[in-house]
Design a protein around this nucleic acid. Sequence first.
DNA 1: GATGAATGAGCGTTCATTCAT
DNA 2: GATGAATGAACGCTCATTCAT
Lengths: 192, 192, 192, 192
Amino acid sequence: MSPRTEEQLIKHKAEKRKVITQAALKLFSEEGFQSTSISKIAKEAGVSKGLIYTYFESKEELLRFLILDTIDEMFGIAEVSLGINPTDESFEKMISDYFDWVQINRAFLQIYFGILMQPSVMKLFEKEIMAKAYNVFERMSVYFKNKGFEDPLSETRFFISILDGIYMNYIMDSENYPLAKAKSRILTMYLK
Amino acid sequence: MSPRTEEQLIKHKAEKRKVITQAALKLFSEEGFQSTSISKIAKEAGVSKGLIYTYFESKEELLRFLILDTIDEMFGIAEVSLGINPTDESFEKMISDYFDWVQINRAFLQIYFGILMQPSVMKLFEKEIMAKAYNVFERMSVYFKNKGFEDPLSETRFFISILDGIYMNYIMDSENYPLAKAKSRILTMYLK
Amino acid sequence: MSPRTEEQLIKHKAEKRKVITQAALKLFSEEGFQSTSISKIAKEAGVSKGLIYTYFESKEELLRFLILDTIDEMFGIAEVSLGINPTDESFEKMISDYFDWVQINRAFLQIYFGILMQPSVMKLFEKEIMAKAYNVFERMSVYFKNKGFEDPLSETRFFISILDGIYMNYIMDSENYPLAKAKSRILTMYLK
Amino acid sequence: MSPRTEEQLIKHKAEKRKVITQAALKLFSEEGFQSTSISKIAKEAGVSKGLIYTYFESKEELLRFLILDTIDEMFGIAEVSLGINPTDESFEKMISDYFDWVQINRAFLQIYFGILMQPSVMKLFEKEIMAKAYNVFERMSVYFKNKGFEDPLSETRFFISILDGIYMNYIMDSENYPLAKAKSRILTMYLK
DNA sequence: GATGAATGAGCGTTCATTCAT
DNA sequence: GATGAATGAACGCTCATTCAT
């Protein structure tokens, strides 16, 4: 048996992290971060408690990894869809992608919105999240500027507020929330 | 000396509850419900740990009291402003009242939104909150129906989503969030 | 209104003590001494927590009063029935009186036997109980000596063990325990 | 290094349970179940408070383990000694075995009798203890029936009451109680 | 790498006791 | 005398984290 190559090791580590992260994601969304113990995560992931500390320095670091990893994906949607010269088509594409993404990532968003509301936990991410968020603000502002809005940044924040509000209400009451209608409504708002 | 009269006791009890509730409100909003210990609340309120249990049966009951008490106020705004025959004026009044209320009750809203995102905590209030929320939905639907919307309930939920999204973003980034602009924007949306 | 005479005060105090003691007796027998709080006793007795401390120095003193008061009665049965020259008639009378007494005082005996088994609680009474018990031993020994037993003290302790054993088993399983048979059995043992 | 084998873990677990159980046995017998804190047990056993919860789910479960484990042994004496066809020899053997067992297991019996007197604690064991006790009743009844007693079950309960009474008095006053005499006295009673 | 026994600080809660009224 | 608000120590229990194996 030859020792694994460095590449294999990295891959192995990434896989293990994924297993643990997925278990944590599920539990955090059901019970909240504070109420979920490392023991429960270990059991859900099918590993020992101690092993979690081989892959993450602490419970907080596990949360950080979980959040930051997925946030890249989330904020990336705007980046990819809008590109440098955002058009109505790319704007519509972005909205569509977001609505799809949200439905797949309900558990994550539940944790994410919960964290946003807790300053003491938010401190763990504040810098990264705010940097990414303001980056997206700028990108979208270009679109709203092109569309002729007087205060494109405020419109951006207004637009994002609408999205956040929709997603939050959808998460809370997924069965009854008229998500499809909300989507077409927002499209109408901006694309006539 | 004779003991205090019943009236004195009731007044005293209400005052003490207020002191404890205020301390809890502050800490819950900063740290979250689960991360705030009864010890911290007692210290913040300037009373002993044990005393809290003279006024509240448990930490959860304290949260319930805190939330349900203020939620009545919050949902009451729509009821009072809209009345039975909602007009554009009363609708505008309601929005204005909400924006005022939110700025005064940031700490509460922070806790409130946090709770909405945690199923395990939400269980404590689900029934009451949902009942009140659906009540407000109906009331607002009347307005949107009068305004000619084809699907007034969906519009209500869309409108409330916008408000929630605005407040959530405001709470997260109060210093930079363009709250006044968001307010005039939403007014324009519905009142021309 | 003239102030009460000293006699009235003493009577009043005795009555209040009785009320509290009766409440405590009931609760101690159901839940045990340690698991019964002063609050519960106060509620059961229909008085305030504070008042209990007007009549008893501490929870332990309340227990002491409860036990020692009734123990006098219990040990007194032997004294009264046997007299100085115990006969078969007085011995039979004593047994009969004890069996009657036990059925009325089940709650007390439950507490009493429980206490006997806890050295740390027993310390509160050890001196008094042991003094009274050894006093009864001597008195009964006279009877067994008269009956011709070689070792009257051992027989006394054996006889008392039988009574204790019967009462303990009766208390544990009152519905099914054949108390009447046990009584006639012990009478047969000693009176042929 | 690889983790311990399952066999090692089981052995280790049994040993640790024993250490904790022994400490609890000592303290429960001295102070009673309710007055003995988990902290004291941990200190006595030389382990941390938290560790006790690795081996027992709760303080009550620790008591249950302690009691039920030893009760099997205690009730087993009758079963083993008497067999299916009890004779005078096996009856004498049983009494002898019980007297030996009692002297070794004073601490246990102290807890056991204490529990029998507290309905709220007794609830934890009622089913198991009563089942075993009635089982022993039946077995002994065979012996008393063979001996010609008219009501063998009542005689059984009377006989067991005597044993219980002796042991209880012995436990309370071990130094002075004439245990050997009590033993020969009860043997004389039944075996002439 | 992987395990789970072990720790100890801290949690929510209870309660005997005190004391201002 | 009588009340019950107030205290603070202690309780049973949990849990993030460490470490011998």
